[in-house]
Write a protein that binds this DNA or RNA. Sequence first.
DNA 1: GATGAATGAGGCTTCATTCAT
DNA 2: CATGAATGAAGCCTCATTCAT
Lengths: 191, 191, 191, 191
Amino acid sequence: MKISDKRNDVMQAALELIADQGFHGAPMAEIAEKAGVATGTIYRYFENKEVLIRELHRELEEKISATLREGYPVERPLRERFLYLIRELLRYFITNPLHFRYMEQYFNSPYGISMHRDRLLGKSGNHDILMDIFELGIQQQVLKELPKAVLFPLAFGPLIILMRDHILGFVILDDPLIKQITEACWDTIKR
Amino acid sequence: MKISDKRNDVMQAALELIADQGFHGAPMAEIAEKAGVATGTIYRYFENKEVLIRELHRELEEKISATLREGYPVERPLRERFLYLIRELLRYFITNPLHFRYMEQYFNSPYGISMHRDRLLGKSGNHDILMDIFELGIQQQVLKELPKAVLFPLAFGPLIILMRDHILGFVILDDPLIKQITEACWDTIKR
Amino acid sequence: MKISDKRNDVMQAALELIADQGFHGAPMAEIAEKAGVATGTIYRYFENKEVLIRELHRELEEKISATLREGYPVERPLRERFLYLIRELLRYFITNPLHFRYMEQYFNSPYGISMHRDRLLGKSGNHDILMDIFELGIQQQVLKELPKAVLFPLAFGPLIILMRDHILGFVILDDPLIKQITEACWDTIKR
Amino acid sequence: MKISDKRNDVMQAALELIADQGFHGAPMAEIAEKAGVATGTIYRYFENKEVLIRELHRELEEKISATLREGYPVERPLRERFLYLIRELLRYFITNPLHFRYMEQYFNSPYGISMHRDRLLGKSGNHDILMDIFELGIQQQVLKELPKAVLFPLAFGPLIILMRDHILGFVILDDPLIKQITEACWDTIKR
DNA sequence: GATGAATGAGGCTTCATTCAT
DNA sequence: CATGAATGAAGCCTCATTCAT
């Protein structure tokens, strides 16, 4: 058994419980039980619940970031790059619905706000790419002349609700639909 | 003093506390104190905390609905009607940020899911109007041919993030910006 | 039942448990049980365990102070006043052994140190009297010319061990013995 | 590396931590870390925490005893012998403040009581000497005619508070002061 | 109707001790 | 012998809800 086995078990259990029931539906004792460890064991790997929550967020963020960068078409036109990002993000979350639900919980919590601030200030990985697209797009007069802090909600806001509805089974996001949606997102911000 | 005075006081106190600090930052005792009543008194008007929360949501929903219907330009073209809805919703929330924050909390909680289901099934007031627009728009080939369950997220998704950022002070939504935004939302769904 | 009934019950229970077993032998749950209340009830009267502990100390201190002041022979010579203080203190603690054991625990804890500092700076009630005696005694050349911070341990140090041994049953402090002891204490500091 | 190296490291670490922070501020894990060994290793040398604590006390007691016996002027008059004991004890603790603080913690704990009982029954080393002085002193009518269980507190009680205050910085015990104090202690018990 | 003291289940965290490696 | 991860009982505290006044 690798050293990190239990650590991962704990994170996975926390991910599932929190995604499912929110931070308050996920007592440490229950996380431990689901992870198959004793309560005290969690504290060997995470100083406290908050650290566990932040760490989990950080790991997901990283995974998502890596996924988006992987096949990112740096050389292609802005529009294509943008569509790629939206499409892959949707696909990632469709494949990993727990990740989406977790990020949503995190976003909608005290923790999320400071993170969001950082993002708008251009610190986070995915955002660098996105903000570049926005900046270039405005320069090249391809995009509407709006603050980046407005372009982002316009382009990404729909995804949040769409994903939510998809996970709840209210919509089914298949590839043709995804194509239409990503293009609609582009339409929102393109000049 | 009207019979319902205390009831309103409780709801107002709950609104403020929950909007500010989330459901967990709003113990019944604190709500009572803020409302100027005894803890036990709350239970005279609301069976339990969950009922209070749901009731509060219902009232806000109703108020918003009423506001949107008030000057709704039934006779004007689809685009104008749509822009009206988005604009007024933004304005309402800018004027009543606590209402937005509360709805956000509610939406992002176990309660929120059932509510959302109801909405998609066409029970809520605002939705009737909106769904009519979508239906007509598709018929008249003004809107993209997408499921209504997709058109809604596309058109309204941005608002949630925008409002959030506005309240947090990351963007300032003034009238010119609102105009641009509402038009961008229309661009997302228009054919 | 008076409002303060449960508060007193809690303090009495805490006194007994802490005097008997120290701070760590007195979990809140046990204090509650002994007091005949629910655990949560304690927190209605005391913000937390530390506050309970400090409050208890304060009350005892006050009671002792009151006792010592009661028949204090202000007009009599220094020696007599001094003997009075020592004697009454011993008697008080013999009558209230739990109080002694509690004060001992308190004294020997982080809380006790700051208290002690205050005392030496002349803030506490009993000490005012005592410090006056020391000061006058030095002026009148009745007492040894030592710092007050030294006179105090010399005169009162024995009491602590004596009381301890008395409570443990190793000595029995009856009135004749008390007389001898108080005079011995005077001998320590008198010129 | 001698076999007992780790054992000593553990005891030294325990001494420092407990003297500084009390028994509760000294978790086994922290003792181990400070000693540079694994947690489990402690249990190779000490059956459990209580044994470690007792053992540590025993060693200190022994060391102190040895120190006091070293230059003990057996042949000199009682008074001189007595002054020697007090003076050397004070000096020992001034040189080894951690030892004093540890003994204090120990004395003021459930463990301390049984120890104290043993002392009065004449088991501990230092006491033999002291008790001899008392016994002789009474025989020779140099000392007050009091039970030995009373003479001891009278003579040694002051030292505890004085040391405490010295360590806390409330008094500074230099040689002249020590001389005065030891003589005052003698005055307490001399006829 | 209104009050608010009382309840006690449940949440987070610590730490003495064990045991497989 | 030594290690340190794992355990889980136990401690402190919060808070939704009840109920005697």
